[in-house]
């Protein structure tokens, strides 16, 4: 096997630095922010917020695995975060339903009874 190819395979097998995960998390968070800002449909906005929370969770688990003295406690925190997010979704969809019943729309820019 030529040495370059071996080197390439080694690189592929090498452990990744922490930044890699953090940056993926950051980009995912950014996409979530984007969606939450531009989409009209409240349910899609929920989804985007879920993306944000998942991005944070990814960051958290990456820290849990990489930080030397934390003992992986971050994974436990991640479980808590998943539970909180689930609770938010439950209440969120219930409220979306209530809004839909009164207004027949869940588009956030049409929900505008109150001004000023």
């Amino acid at each position: 096997m030529p040495p370059q190819a071996q080197q390439f395979l080694d690189q592929l097998n090498a452990t990744l630095p922490l930044e890699a995960y953090l940056i993926v998390g950051a980009l995912m968070f950014g996409i979530g922010v984007w969606g939450a800002l531009v989409r009209r449909n409240a349910v899609v906005v929920f989804m985007c917020i879920e993306l944000m929370i998942n991005a944070v969770n990814l960051t958290l688990v990456a820290f849990a695995d990489y930080l030397p003295n934390a003992g992986g406690a971050g994974v436990g925190y991640a479980v808590l975060v998943i539970a909180v997010a689930a609770a938010e979704v439950a209440v969120g969809l219930a409220i979306a339903l209530a809004v839909y019943r009164s207004r027949k729309t869940v588009n956030v820019d049409e929900i505008n009874l109150m001004k000023g």
């Binding site: 968070f29 979530g32 922010v33 939450a36 409240a42 906005v45 929920f46 917020i49 944000m52 929370i53 991005a55 944070v56 960051t59 958290l60 820290f63 975060v81 909180v84 938010e88 209440v91 969120g92 409220i95 979306a96 209530a98 809004v99 019943r101 009164s102 207004r103 869940v106 956030v108 929900i111 009874l113 109150m114």
Partner: peptide
């Protein structure tokens, strides 16, 4: 009618705030 609407706005901003806060904590 204001009530579910207010709830919706509160919820959306509150959830965004929660994820920002969580990111900071993480």
């Amino acid at each position: 009618r204001e009530s579910p609407e207010g709830g919706m706005k509160y919820l959306l901003t509150g959830m965004v705030a929660a994820s920002i806060l969580l990111y900071g904590i993480v």
